[in-house]
Design a protein around this nucleic acid. Structure first.
Lengths: 195, 195
DNA sequence: CTTCTGATGACAGTGACTGACATCAATCCC
DNA sequence: GGGATTGATGTCAGTCACTGTCATCAGAAG
């Protein structure tokens, strides 16, 4: 006989998202989440640092995808090419099956400033990791930071469109479009820097 | 005879920054800040929404500077020109006299994730306000968001360099350099979008 | 002189989070 | 096989951020 049901962490994640959706983030207490899956509040905090973190448990994986892609780019790649390669890697992390789940999660996050704050922190860390990877490959500052921030911006813009869209366009296509738009926007700058 | 010393808000701001610097953000209780200037914890929360907000009281001013500059740009200005105009407006908000204060504030923020989160949220709101101003002037999505995010990124990069630098370069010069670097980074993109 | 206003104090309450200690099935080791 | 160990959990007490409510009282308004 098992002493505890396995997968406590997963059950807490699922229950938290459901309750946040149904009755709101503020209106949901941690004790409520825990009891709804047969655990105690104390156990919740052994799995997640705080009430928000339960929605951000797999960000590390995305970060590795970004960093590994930068590292895997050919030796003579430009910063832009490394960044484009990292963006390409994000596609497999968001197959269309996860769209519904991603939408629910994003809905809760956008509706609650504390969760938005946490998301922004995660994205900032992601950006910093990419910048560090670029620096390790010889890109100087402030180019590394600018390139990394641009990559995250393009990813975020494309990702939100992907969620907002019906089922029409793929994340890859939206990322490509956003990157191209960035080029259009900065076209005059490129000319100026050439002079 | 005055019942209370005037400038409660200012005194709280100053005391909070000092205590956060001296003994750390977590180690400082709100009651401690309030009592150190002859007030109660309850009064602190009447002036500031939470323990973090006391360090972010003037962000609205910066936001107005950005938005007003975008609106004041000539009618035929490109998104890039509007953004550059907004960046130019930030200079007067950070005269060299405020550098020391800005450094102390930044030191506390960078050392404490909860404060970093709040700063990121403020910057995201700033970016969104700029994007909205661009949209109001006819810039379509996703160009408006990309331009606004790029502006905030350039500003942030330049601002941090300005704080890190000795006394050598002005904020204006650093902003110009960062903007040029962004152009270099995206040069290949501009070429691709032209084709 | 009375009334009203606005910033503050006092106080009780909720909920997020932490530290310390107990429990006990599963597993390891002899 | 049986005792020691481990690891996920429960229990309980405590701190602190933050909120709602009511009282206070100097000064402005009339």
């Amino acid at each position: 006989m098992v002493r505890w049901e396995p997968g406590a962490r997963d059950r807490l994640r699922k229950a938290a998202l459901e309750l946040y959706l149904q009755q709101g983030f503020e209106q949901t207490t941690v004790g409520e989440i825990a009891r709804s899956v047969g655990l105690t509040e104390r156990t919740f905090f052994r799995h997640f640092a705080d009430k928000r973190e339960v929605l951000f448990d797999n960000q590390d994986t995305l970060q590795h995808a970004f960093v590994d892609s930068v590292n895997a780019a050919p030796p003579d790649a430009s910063p832009l090419e490394m960044v484009a390669s990292a963006l390409a890697a994000t596609r497999e992390f968001f197959p269309d099956e996860r769209r519904t789940w991603s939408r629910q999660r994003q809905e809760v996050i956008m509706a609650n400033p504390p969760l938005k704050e946490r998301e922004l922190l995660k994205m900032a860390r992601l950006s910093e990791a990419v910048a560090e990877a670029l620096r390790a490959r010889g890109v100087a500052e402030p180019a590394a930071t600018l390139a990394a921030e641009s990559a995250i911006t393009v990813f975020t813009v494309a990702f939100l469109q992907w969620l907002a869209d019906g089922e029409t366009r793929s994340l890859a296509a939206l990322e490509h479009e956003a990157l191209t738009e960035l080029g259009t926007f900065t076209a005059a700058l490129a000319k100026a820097s050439k002079a």
